[in-house]
Each structure stands twice: as structure tokens, then as C-alpha cells.
Design a protein around this nucleic acid. Structure first.
Lengths: 165, 165
DNA sequence: GTTATTGCAAATGATTTGCACAAGG
DNA sequence: CCTTGTGCAAATCATTTGCAATAAC
């Protein structure tokens, strides 16, 4: 876990008069150990492997805390479960492209997008605080070559495309 | 209800070998009678006033159909319920700004945004099919004048800000 | 007459909550 | 100690579904 994240979490816990517990420690550790997005349940599974003692309820409660601390953000992938993104600490204004063919999520940052959002928002009489862009797109490689490594990987891993709610 | 919408719905029903029923007729009628966004339950309430006979289940099922026909789109307002937007038929590529102060949703269309999305997506190796942008923003009028007609309207109507899930 | 559609009530599934016990500070 | 945090199981709440009755075509 990045030390900046640990720092911010510690600060948040102190400021709010909360307590440092083993569960919170481990949940955060697992959540930020990779840059992959996850659902509450996926995180719970991962935490279980490290520590058979932590309950699902605590995972949900800690997720809420991490979101409040702005270490985690909820993103909409058009799913029935909430998806959490642990990468906003490093890439504060990134957005997402979701591949329609294989479900892969690509993160991208672009200054022009941010500027354009800012201008557009001003023109409407507001001050932009946060934006989220989701682009749903088809894979060009798949269209041209008839195959795409991401799709193959998806099929091999047996991970099925997320069901739309 | 716009005749273009009625036409598209009729076509969809025919193509799929579905049946024209009173319930579907009335649900669509109510859904497209205003340009306001709504949840399944809000639509159900409105339908009830017109017709005490239609069940919640049928409203849900018909909503699914209207989404498949691309007459309605599900949008993410960061809520625990799905919000439906009936305005994509008239403004096929609009996006949303949500006021943090009063919850008002402003729709906007912008060609530059569309072009930029297209470019960005190509550069990542994909072909953009659909995008959704949500801008969360503070109201400038409220900041400068200390008040904003939308906020006043929100308070008067007693409509509370949507709860975050 | 078939087959799709509806209403009802029960099921689902993710998330939240009340409460008694445990453990930080 | 005193208060916050945890685990458990039960509660919630939007949405979905099975099924028998009903209505399109």
C-alpha cells in the first residue's frame, strides 16, 4: 500500500476520532494492494484469504469510510453492484472506457477533457467539482483482426461480462 | 407523446412479434408525457393516477422494453434507484450536470465533447459507441448572491436531495 | 386457439442495521 | 472504563420471477 494512502487514512482516522483496528488495516491493505477495480464482495473474498476473521459487514462499513476519506471512489460500470476504484489517489481526474466486447476497463486521463468540462460548466452557470465520463466502445483490433488479446484473456479466465441490472 | 416515439415503439413491437396492450400504451404515454427524469416507482405512481389497473411488475417489464427499444436510457445520478431519461430520442447525445447544492439536473449537448470523445477513444484503440458524462457542480448564483431560484424551488417543493446509496 | 402478457406474491441479491460482545485509547 | 468497532443475523429495498389467470392476434 502506497505510503501516501496510508498517511491519508491515518489522518482521516485521527481527525474523526475513529480507531485504528486490525480489520481496517487489513481491508485497506488489500483494497490498495492492486490497482484493479473491485466490488464489495470481491474485496471481502480477498480479505478472507488474508484473514478469516473479518466479516462482510465490516468490509461494507470500511468501504464507506474509505470513500468518505476520498481514497476510494464508487464508479458506475452499469452493474448491479457498486464498483470501487482505488486509483484516484494517484490519478485524481481519470475517467473510464469500457470495452463492449470483453468488458475490459481502460483508465485514461486527459487535460483537454478537464478544460472542456470546466468551460462547459461555467457556461451553464456552475463550478465543476467532479466529473465522471464513461465511454462504451468496441475494440478495433477485434474488428480488424477478428481477435483481441483482452477478449482471449477474458474468455480464458472464464470471467463473464458483467450483467446489466 | 411525440409521434416519432410512438412510431418507433410500434415498429419495435412489430419487429419483435410483441403485442400492443393497454398497459404498454399507457405506460409509454405517461413516461413520455414530460421531459423529466424518473425512477420506476415514480413512473408507477404516475401511471396509477391515470389507470389504477397497472401493476408495478408490468411497469418494470415495460421499462425494460423501452430501454431495449432505445427510447429510454438508464442514467446514473449516484442514486440507489435507477433513473430513466426520456429525452434521448430528441437529444441523442446529451449529457448531464447535477447541481450539488439543489440536486437539479441540467442536460447539455456539445459537439466538441463528442468529437473529443471520438478522438480519445480512437487513440486508445477503440471505436466509441456511447458515452455518458456526469458533471457534479456547485451553483455560481448561489455562491455569488447567496441564493438561487432552483434551490428555493427545491426547498419549496419539499423534494429532498437524493440519497447516495 | 395459441402464445404473449399481466397481476400477484414470493424470491432475489446487494447493502444496511440492531444488538450484544469485544477491543482501542 | 468508556466509547467505538465488530460479527452475526435479521431487515431493507429495488428489482425480478414463477405461475395461474387474461387478453392479443
Amino acid at each position: 500500500m502506497d505510503s501516501g494512502i496510508k498517511q491519508r487514512l491515518d489522518d482521516f482516522i485521527s481527525q474523526r476520532g475513529l480507531r485504528r483496528t486490525g480489520q481496517r488495516e487489513r481491508i485497506a491493505e488489500v483494497a490498495f494492494s492492486r490497482d484493479e477495480h473491485f466490488t464489495a464482495d470481491e474485496l471481502f473474498e480477498r480479505v478472507c484469504k488474508v484473514d478469516g476473521e473479518t466479516s462482510r459487514a465490516t468490509v461494507y462499513r470500511t468501504l464507506g469510510l474509505l470513500v468518505e476519506a476520498d481514497l476510494l471512489r464508487q464508479i458506475d460500470l452499469g452493474d448491479s453492484q457498486i464498483t470501487y476504484d482505488p486509483n484516484f489517489h494517484n490519478k485524481p481526474s481519470h475517467n473510464h472506457l469500457v470495452c463492449i466486447d470483453c468488458g475490459k476497463v481502460v483508465e485514461f486521463e486527459d487535460d483537454n477533457v478537464d478544460i472542456q468540462t470546466d468551460c462547459l460548466t461555467r457556461r451553464l452557470g456552475y463550478k465543476a467539482i467532479r466529473q465522471s465520463i464513461k465511454i462504451e466502445a468496441n475494440c478495433e483490433q477485434l474488428r480488424i483482426n477478428g481477435r483481441c488479446p483482452d477478449l482471449i484473456a477474458t474468455r480464458l479466465s472464464g470471467k463473464r461480462l458483467r450483467k446489466k441490472r
